[in-house]
Design a protein around this nucleic acid. Sequence first.
DNA 1: TGACTGGTTTGATATATGTCAAAATTCATG
DNA 2: CATGAATTTTGACATATATCAAACCAGTCA
Lengths: 241, 241
Amino acid sequence: MQQSVSSFRRKAACSNCRLRELCLPVGLSAGEMQQVDDISHLKRGYARGDYLYRSNDKFQSLYAIRKGSFKTQVLHEDGREQVTGFQMTGEIIGLDAICTDHHTCDAVAMESSEVCELPFNKLETLSRELPSLQRHLHKIMSREIVRDQGIMLLLGSMRAEERLAAFLLNLSQRLAARGLSPTQFQLRMSRQEIGSYLGLKLETVSRAFSNFQDNGLINVRARAVELLDLPALHALVGKQQ
Amino acid sequence: MQQSVSSFRRKAACSNCRLRELCLPVGLSAGEMQQVDDISHLKRGYARGDYLYRSNDKFQSLYAIRKGSFKTQVLHEDGREQVTGFQMTGEIIGLDAICTDHHTCDAVAMESSEVCELPFNKLETLSRELPSLQRHLHKIMSREIVRDQGIMLLLGSMRAEERLAAFLLNLSQRLAARGLSPTQFQLRMSRQEIGSYLGLKLETVSRAFSNFQDNGLINVRARAVELLDLPALHALVGKQQ
DNA sequence: TGACTGGTTTGATATATGTCAAAATTCATG
DNA sequence: CATGAATTTTGACATATATCAAACCAGTCA
C-alpha cells in the first residue's frame, strides 16, 4: 500500500494557505500576503511514494510544502539515479523547471504530505506589482543555487563521515528553524536514499552511522537519530582530512 | 606578471554593451534591449588572476561576460577550496549572491577579460516593467540550478573518466554555441583546477587525459585539446559503470 | 640560446570506499 | 503474537582514486 491506495487528491481554491507561516515571511503586508494566497491552491492527500511531479512534466507551478516532506531525484538515461535534495515543510519545490518549461527531476513524497500550488505565471504577474514578492522570489532561487553549491563542495571534497555529519547538521538546522527538536528526530529517508544524496553507497552510510555511534557523537537505531555531540560534528565538517 | 601589473580598470557608462549578442537574446524588442543596455556598465582590463568579486563582497550586480572567461571558487574555512564553475563569454556570473546580499564565492579571471556590469536593483526595477526580461532572468537563474544539479549527479555517481568526458563535452557544446570549433580548443584552466571542479586530484585528471589519448578519443598536449571521437565520449558519459 | 619555473605526466604504493554476501533488526500484516 | 518482507548492520575482499615522488615538458625571462 505504498502509493496505490490513497492516490485520490483534492484540489481546492484556497483562501488561506497560510503561506505567511511557511515560505514567504518576508516583508509583505497582510494585504499583499492575501494576494499571494488568492492565486494559490491547496493540494492534499499525498501519500508516501506519490509523485508531486515527474521529470518532463510540463512546468506550471511552484509548490510550497505545507505538511510532510519530499525528495527530488534525477534519472540518467541509463538508469543511474540520484537524489538531489530533501525538502521539508516550509520549503519551496519546483524551481528547476523554469528554464525549460519542463521538470528536470521527479518529486516524490516521503510521507503523508500537503502542498500549496503556486501557478508560476500568476506568481510572475503578481511579483511585477509587488517588489517585495519579486525580491523574495529572487532570493529563494538564489538560495537554491547556493545550497547546490554547498552540496557540490560536499560531494567534491569531503570524506564519507564528513558528508554524513554535514547532512545531519543540515537536517538539525532546518528542524530548529521550524521550532522542532534539532537533536532528536526521525529520519524520513532510507540509508540508500541518504547514500544517493551524499554520493555514497548505503553500506558506507551505515558504517558511518555506526562509527558516530561508537564514538559517542550520536545515538542511532534504524531511523531514530539523536545528536549527542554537536561541536564534534561541526568540527568534522570543518576539518581538513 | 600574473595579476600585479595590469590591475587598472576602466568603468564607463556604456551605451551599447551588445548584450543582445551575448546573454539576452530572448524576446526583447530593440527598444527594450536599449533599456537594458542603458543600465549596464562596461568594465574592461581584467587580467589573468584578477578578481571580479570576492567572497563576502557586498552584492551589487550581476555580470555578463563580454570577453574572456572566469572561474568561481568557494573557500572552506579550513582552507579547502573548490572550483564551482567555469564561465565563458556570453554567460552570466554572480547569481549566487542574491539571497544573502553578499557573494558566496570568488570569481577570478582566467585570461584577459571584459564584463558588462548589471546593477541588480536596476535590473529588478526594469524587469517589473518588461515581462520578457523578467521571464528571462528567471530562466537564467533556473538554468543555473539545473546546471548545478547536473554537476551533483556527476560528482555523486560518475567515475573519473566519465567526469572528464562530461566536462570536455560540456566545453565543446558551449564553444559550439558561440560559433567556435567544438572539437579543437585551448583549455584556459590547469589540471588542478579541472580536478577541483570534478572532485578529482590533478594526477587523476592527467591520467584520464592520457587514457583518452591512448584510446584515440582525443589528442591532448598540455592545454591544447582535440576531440577525435565524440560518439565514444558521449557513450562514456551515458554508460553505467 | 639556455636556464628557470610552474605545470604536466608517469610510476609505485596506500587507502577510502565499493562490492558481494550473510546475519540481524525493524516494520508491516494477518 | 507470529510471520515474512524490507531495511539495516556487519564482515571479507576488490578496486578506483589519492598520495608521494620523480621525471618530463612548455612557456618565460635573462
